[in-house]
């Protein structure tokens, strides 16, 4: 065991961890924005729009994330004749993938709001879109905080897949040091602990939010 090696390479690993945080935060943000649109389309009374969205969700949930990353990184530039750097390709792939999961989380959140609330809002003279904006969505969002944090945790862990397109995030940073020093055990142990630190922090934040908004389990 040679943990001096971990100490020497810690700044490099932390740089990688920062990229991991950036990818996760951006993808979760875009995933929630896009996922909200997707879930509205999914619950739309227009049959064709709802069916199309269901296809979108099934496509993204039914294919491996790594394949989606390769498709966007290697395939999209040929299609649009425009380069995409690996960071942008990664965030794009994760945002799109995450939007499918977020959409389903939000849908279950919206459907968990009792029908009476919608009926009451409408009978008080709110328009359907005002009902959605001021009554349904705010309640739905607080209820879905725990599953959304779970989505954030899986995004954070899945961001290690970006090592395959040469993004130097935490996993690739550890891999680079391990392949240079031939000390995989020490490096991957350090990498695991850094991931664990980040995911524990996320769960802690989630529990804080749950307590604050008094979310039933």
């Amino acid at each position: 065991m040679d943990f001096g090696l971990v100490r020497d390479n810690l700044p490099f690993l932390l740089q990688g961890a920062w990229i991991t945080v950036e990818v996760t935060a951006l993808s979760l943000l875009f995933g929630i924005l896009l996922g909200t649109l997707v879930t509205l389309a999914r619950m739309s009374p227009l049959r064709w729009l709802s069916a199309l969205t269901l296809g979108y969700i099934e496509l993204l949930r039914g294919t491996p994330l790594l394949v989606q990353i390769f498709l966007i990184f290697f395939g999209l530039p040929q299609l649009i004749q425009q380069q995409i750097n690996e960071f942008a390709a990664g965030v794009l792939a994760f945002s799109i993938n995450s939007s499918a999961y977020v959409a389903e989380i939000l849908r279950s959140g919206i459907q968990s709001i009792p029908k009476g609330q919608r009926e009451a809002a409408l009978s008080l003279g709110l328009s359907p879109s005002q009902t959605l904006r001021y009554v349904i969505l705010p309640q739905a969002f607080t209820r879905v905080i725990p599953p959304l944090v779970n989505e954030g945790i899986s995004l954070l862990k899945n961001s290690s897949l970006l090592s395959a397109i040469a993004v130097v995030e935490l996993t690739r940073a550890g891999q680079l040091v391990a392949s240079r020093t031939f000390k995989p055990f020490e490096m991957y142990l350090a990498v695991s602990l850094l991931y664990l630190g980040m995911t524990l922090l996320l769960s802690w934040v989630s529990r804080g939010l749950e307590r604050r908004w008094n979310i039933p389990h």
Binding site: F73, F74, P77, Q78, Q83, E86, I165, A166
Partner: peptide, 18 residues
């Protein structure tokens, strides 16, 4: 430096202008 898992992927990255 862009380090890929496979050499074939490194070649593909050049071919696709990545």
């Amino acid at each position: 430096v862009k380090s890929y898992n496979l050499y074939t992927e490194a070649a593909l990255a050049v071919q696709t202008r990545q």
